[in-house]
Design a protein around this nucleic acid. Structure first.
Lengths: 346, 346
DNA sequence: CTGTTAGCGCATTCAC
DNA sequence: GTGAATGCGCTAACAG
């Protein structure tokens, strides 16, 4: 009894099998064994098999610490997101992981909770582990800056920090927003509210611009009173939406700039018994699971989030394998999905 | 022109600042610098400041590869999940990340897509990077087995593989299911279907047991015909549910064993215009965002998923810092949340 | 309290 | 083709 269930890192842990032991088992030198396993350099075919067999027999697991100390980098790739609980980022991470794993890389996931300071810490951690590259949705310039400065390949996702020297994969927010709002305008709506939680990034600002552009195109005047900026991480988003709707009774449609605000808007509309789309139409930017499940379905601008993750990862992999050209930005196209939440203005 | 936007790993990358340079800058030896920065061992207060200042001035970033090569492990902690796109796992990961980050550890996230083979590869990768510990939702015994065998602390989450020597954090599936189904029985339902996607783990089997136990307690006979096992990753879950409902017209309530099957059930009920709860009541095991947003709200057994992640991480951290005792299993309690989707049997 | 010494496990010259 | 030697950056004994 009381025998350690856990080897922990203590005495019971079977000591690590090293290349040296594999070499001995195979009857070669360490360097030959190394070449045999790595596949580089010249090794006699027979010897190669011997070594591989020995490695399997002994349960050899290469040590990336040693390898990356010797070489340039660990195979690790960092991913920095703002809120893993937000399904948007979870899907992004899933896309990234998928592509990375297929290429034999591992993903180190750090959540900065929207704080630039934590992002910087994350970046430092990536540097510390000699990450082969980093993907991030910037919350400031510092993380990207530090990484680029140290020569770590960086690809920004969703937003761009403006730091020079890194690739990016984003979505055409303005265009998506324009389509969504044009859709509402075509349905006859004239007092359309836009709800956002920031205008400091291309995402929020782009969506606001698209909202405005659609109005201009349709010759419909804009009103500042119809813009609600909740700010990042609002204490009571739904309450803010409620107050806003109370103060602007003429609103017949709402454009929600992302899934977080869309949720607040939807819930508030439901709470006050507002019939959708009869009393008020709604469109969201960002199309998540719940939006196709609710009744009526929520019309939304679909972002290919998962694909954005894998594209970004693919771009990064190219840089990691030595691609040198100048910084590229891939812009993915969003797509308006019309469902039941948008109807003609009554 | 065409100056590399990317330093890549090539020439433009500023060479890494090493401890040696910090030591030179501070006018001490490498070991003193090391001690000063690490905080262990004796260092004169003044010298410590000197070294720290030098480190900051030079932008020193410690190299974990070197550190873990010397010591026992990198600070990395692995997390292996079955499907990051499933919000359940995303929340779990978020909880894990949060707790790990607070303790200064990084999380390496691997998605095995439910394949034991990929899980094993992931485990090997964790071994390779000398992970300090690993958290996983097992899809077989091999990953856990390999890890434990090598002395890596392991904590299983959500399910248990049965491999001895590792801690676990799970949810009392049986109890949660029993509550959910008892709730339906109390409402007068007598033909209650249960829909699952596996019965090979404590999760699926536990929920089935709970379903049965509730019936026994209420003295209501069981019928095999009321059990639908879709199997993991069914091609057309909604279609299967449809066929099942067609074949069993007497059903007045459905208990969905997890969020994935709940979605299929819900969508199918909607598609066929079945009024919830008037025509059919529904309860889900697992309470996700969309379930509180839909109308009527979906009654669900809430699992503290995020907390499960952080508890598991906390347990692992104890092991990592040397805790030796025998394997522990923490069982978290689920909680039935009654919403509009459950009503009296008509 | 501090510096010197000695590897951690591996990949890479370079002779053979 | 192969093996001996070297050092990646760091920390943990040791002496001083």
């Amino acid at each position: 009894m009381g025998r350690d269930a856990h080897g922990g890192k203590g005495k019971r842990a079977r000591p690590r099998v090293t290349l040296r032991e594999v070499a001995e088992e195979a009857g070669t030198s360490r360097s030959t064994a190394s070449r045999a396993l790595a596949g580089h350099g010249y090794v006699a075919a027979g010897v190669k098999e011997q070594v591989e067999a020995a490695a399997v027999r002994l349960g050899y697991v290469p040590d990336v610490s040693a390898r990356s100390l010797k070489g340039r980098s660990s195979g690790l790739v960092g991913l920095l997101v703002s809120d893993l609980r937000n399904q948007f980022y979870a899907l992004l991470a899933a896309g990234v992981e998928q592509t990375l794993a297929a290429a034999g890389h591992q993903m180190v996931l750090v959540d900065d909770h929207g704080s630039d300071k934590q992002a910087l810490e994350g970046a430092r951690a990536f540097l510390s582990m000699r990450a082969a590259g980093v993907l991030l949705a910037p919350v400031g310039r510092s993380a990207t800056g530090l990484l680029v400065e140290h020569g770590t390949p960086v690809v920004e996702v969703d937003r761009r920090s403006g730091v020079r020297g890194c690739d990016a994969v984003t979505i055409d927010s303005e265009r998506g927003a324009r389509e969504a709002v044009s859709h509402l305008l075509e349905l006859g709506h004239r007092r359309i509210a836009v709800v956002l939680d920031e205008t400091m990034w291309d995402t929020g600002m782009g969506r606001l611009k698209g909202y405005r552009a659609a109005h201009r195109e349709a010759g419909v005047p804009l009103s500042r009173r119809l813009v609600l900026d909740l700010g990042l991480r609002p204490a009571d988003p739904q309450g803010d939406v409620a107050a806003f709707l109370d103060a602007n009774p003429g609103i017949t449609a709402v454009f929600a700039a992302n899934n977080v605000v869309a949720e607040a808007v939807w819930q508030e509309l439901q709470r006050r018994g507002c019939a959708v789309p009869e009393d008020c139409s709604v469109v969201s930017f960002d199309d998540l699971t719940w939006m196709r499940i609710v009744e009526p379905g929520l019309s939304a601008v679909r972002q290919p989030v998962y694909e954005m993750g894998s594209r970004a990862a693919a771009l990064l992999l190219e840089r990691i394998s030595g691609e040198r050209g100048r910084a590229r930005t891939h812009t993915l196209e969003p797509e308006l999905v019309r469902r039941g939440s948008t109807g003609p203005c009554s």
